[in-house]
Amino acid sequence: MSVISSLQWKGDHLLLLDQRQLPHQEIYLKQTAIEDVWNSISALVVRGAPAIGIAAAYGLVLWSQHVQTKDISTFKAELRTQGEYLASSRPTAVNLSWAIERIIRVSFTVPTVEKMKEAILKEAIIIHQEDELVCQRIGEHGLKLLNDGDTILTHCNAGGIATAKYGTALAPLHLAKQNGLSISAIATETRPVLQGARLTAWELERAGIDVTLITDSMAAHVLKTKKIAAVIVGADRIAANGDTANKIGTLGLAHIAKAYHVPFYIAAPLSTIDYSIPHGDAIPIEERDPKEITHYQGQRVAAENIEVFNPAFDVTPHHLINGIITEHGIIRTPYEENLVHLSLPNDQNTEVHS
């Protein structure tokens, strides 16, 4: 099975798969400066909360490689400034700030600028390597919810190209394929940028996994008339009470799944949980360029002089979520209690529920 890599570290530069060009071209863009990484995150060259976090970590590496100062106080102050700069590229995905803060925290423990540079590089590589294992474990736990022959419905792209490997919501599909099981997917096109059509359907077909593409507006009909074992989606930020921000359209899917008694699951690493956010209303929601809605392939498809509202994410309340699949197990309600429990050292195979 081939799972394409979204990021490749090459020692003195970073290669990012340009996901804007998929599925027609597989092009990697060379990133040599922190400004390149900021622009790539903002412009959706790289996307998916875990992949954004990894890219940001390497962005700090690229910055550090060009710094000339030997004064550790100056270096630390500038590192924080550069971290804030990278964090501004996209506000909703918490993995971005999580990776930046982790890099800063680890590097601040060493005594010299040279040691700090070494620590930044080492920690970025660790974050990258850890995410591959985390995604594998998410897939293993998610696979326990499914049976051979099942079909899941998914929204946006939470696959291998949104992470280091395997993905989150798509990880059970990739691992099922590895284990000789047949689990298929129905993917929504995911307007307005068509991540489901361009990325999810392409990724699964490329891996030899059965996938059917539908428009977003077909989801209710599919959940009503087709035998769907579960809806599994990713997440960009999970509040302390389990409310979850994900690609716009997820909230509607959760309500429809509830109406038709289809289990609705979030698949995400613990790094996506923001314990500083008490509930979903406090999650910042990114609004993107109106042209994503008014234009298609560079051509205007909407009338001139109209108002456009283009939030990139919505928030699904925790009472609509049957479980949150993490690398440490499947979290069940009460989320506020069990999310805190899962943030502590825990057996990797434990399912937390009440």
Results as ranks from 00 to 15, higher is better:
2 S>G: 00
9 W>F: 05
10 K>P: 00
12 D>E: 14
14 L>H: 09
18 D>R: 11
26 E>K: 13
26 E>F: 14
34 I>H: 07
38 W>C: 00
41 I>V: 12
45 V>N: 07
47 R>T: 03
54 I>P: 09
55 A>M: 09
57 A>L: 08
58 Y>K: 04
59 G>D: 11
61 V>N: 08
61 V>G: 02
61 V>S: 03
63 W>T: 02
65 Q>C: 06
66 H>K: 15
67 V>L: 09
70 K>F: 07
76 K>D: 15
80 R>E: 14
84 E>W: 00
87 A>K: 15
97 S>H: 07
97 S>L: 13
100 I>K: 08
102 R>V: 00
105 R>Q: 15
109 T>N: 14
111 P>M: 08
114 E>H: 09
121 L>R: 13
126 I>P: 00
134 V>F: 01
137 R>N: 08
146 L>R: 09
147 N>M: 11
149 G>A: 06
150 D>P: 02
153 L>R: 05
154 T>L: 01
163 T>F: 12
169 A>M: 08
170 L>W: 07
173 L>D: 03
175 L>T: 06
186 I>S: 10
186 I>T: 05
186 I>R: 07
192 P>I: 06
194 L>M: 12
194 L>N: 15
195 Q>K: 03
196 G>R: 11
200 T>L: 04
201 A>I: 07
202 W>K: 05
207 A>P: 10
209 I>H: 03
209 I>L: 08
211 V>Q: 03
218 M>K: 10
221 H>Y: 12
224 K>G: 00
227 K>L: 10
227 K>H: 14
233 V>D: 02
234 G>A: 05
243 D>I: 05
244 T>F: 06
249 G>H: 03
258 K>S: 14
259 A>R: 14
262 V>D: 03
267 A>Q: 01
273 I>L: 13
274 D>W: 10
278 P>F: 03
279 H>W: 00
280 G>W: 11
281 D>Q: 15
285 I>P: 10
286 E>F: 09
295 H>S: 04
295 H>W: 09
300 R>F: 07
302 A>W: 10
304 E>T: 11
305 N>D: 15
309 F>T: 11
312 A>V: 02
317 P>S: 13
319 H>D: 15
320 L>F: 15
321 I>H: 01
324 I>L: 06
326 T>F: 01
326 T>W: 03
328 H>V: 13
330 I>Q: 01
337 E>P: 00
339 L>F: 02
344 L>E: 14
346 N>Q: 14
348 Q>N: 10
348 Q>F: 11
350 T>E: 14
352 V>R: 12
